[in-house]
């Protein structure tokens, strides 16, 4: 029996484990959806086949928004998703993905792994019997696709945009109308003008989705999602049932995928951007400075309002913003300064 072998280390290494992983994206969806497959390949290779993970796309076993519950209940052993989908279960979860005008990928990873972020994340998920791991990052996203020019704050007023999450709340503060839409309705609605704008991901995914066919202006930067972290969630009991070496393999594989996705996006986004500009003649623009400023102010307000509503949210947000404050000071004189210097024309 299994109970007997678990006390005997030599026998334990012989035992094999078959896991299932549900995800919030269609299988192999560019970027996001590749991560679960990559994870599965890594784990199988590293463990010599002792741990295999079968990946299910959104809706195959459970709908995309049910990943959390399915892993929490132990229906499957793990999932790949985004923490901000679980806002309704724990408000603080949103912060582990990203917040408007928050940290970029590099900084968020630093906060999570060396700034106390991961401990807080584990704490928030503990009551659900889940262990979270960072599971990829898209890098700074784009502000989105607009059918109308945005020249001033007035242009935001009455603008109908698909923009979920905290970004949507901020957008609403400036007089915009956030609209909830399903993926299937999104493209048609933008094309027909039922909505004026949508955010999606970045050039790589947006090009593939064909959004340039539905809207003329592609605005940057993604103030609302500056470096969204995706997540692997593992059922606590399932994880504890693994021998130490397989546990380590799971953990290391998530770290590898977390970095791998950022690398892929960085490489693909820049080639996709060229294609959007040159082949599809997309008008790429920066949002005007005063619009950005208004969005920033509104973001601070929204974050304060949310903190007042939920103690855990407040605690996590304080840790996050304290880290952001310090890391931006350093990045001001390192990354930021360097970007400036290297772009000087000789």
């Amino acid at each position: 029996g299994q109970e007997k072998t678990s006390s005997d280390p030599a026998a334990q290494t012989q035992q094999s484990y078959q896991w299932k992983m549900v995800t919030s994206w269609p299988k192999n969806f560019p970027g996001l959806g590749r991560a679960p497959e990559t994870f599965s390949e890594y784990v199988e290779k590293m463990s010599g086949g002792r741990l295999t993970v079968k990946v299910y796309g959104a809706g195959e076993l459970v709908p995309g928004f049910e990943v959390f519950d399915a892993v929490s209940q132990g229906t499957v052993q793990m999932g790949h998703s985004g923490a901000y989908y679980w806002k309704g279960k724990a408000a603080a979860a949103q912060i582990f993905t990203t917040i408007p005008f928050g940290m970029n990928a590099q900084e968020t990873n630093a906060w999570l792994h060396y700034g106390g972020g991961m401990e807080l994340w584990r704490e928030v998920y503990k009551p659900f019997g889940l262990i979270p791991f960072a599971g990829g990052n898209t890098g700074v996203q784009m502000a989105g696709w607009f059918k109308k020019e945005i020249n001033s704050i007035e242009d935001i007023q009455g603008l109908k945009m698909r923009i979920p999450g905290l970004g949507g709340e901020v957008f609403k503060k400036l007089g915009g109308i956030p609209v909830a839409l399903t993926g299937g309705e999104l493209f048609t609605s933008l094309q027909s003008g039922a909505i004026d704008a949508t955010e999606w991901v970045g050039p790589y995914n947006d090009l593939a989705f064909g959004l340039y066919k539905a809207a003329d202006y592609y605005y940057y930067s993604g103030w609302h999602e500056p470096g969204p972290v995706l997540e692997f969630i593992v059922n606590e009991d399932a994880f504890n049932a693994l021998p130490k070496d397989l546990q380590a393999i799971v953990e290391v594989a998530t770290r590898a995928v977390n970095q791998d996705m950022l690398d892929e996006y960085t490489a693909r986004n820049n080639t996709a951007m060229q294609s959007l500009k040159d082949t599809h003649n997309v008008d790429m623009r920066a949002l005007p400075a005063d619009v950005m400023k208004a969005l920033k102010l509104a973001s601070t307000e929204v974050m304060q309002e949310q903190s007042a509503l939920d103690a855990t949210f407040k605690k996590v947000y304080e840790s996050y913003s304290e880290f952001q404050n310090k890391v931006s000071q350093y990045h001001q004189i390192s990354e930021h300064e360097y970007y400036k210097n290297r772009s000087v024309q000789n």
Binding site: F65, Y85, W86, K87, G88, K89, A90, P127, P164, G165, L166, G168, E169, K172, P178, A180
Partner: peptide, 12 residues
């Protein structure tokens, strides 16, 4: 957990 909407601004 008195679960509320996954959408910002949704029903609780």
């Amino acid at each position: 957990i008195l679960e509320s909407s996954p959408q910002a601004g949704g029903l609780a």
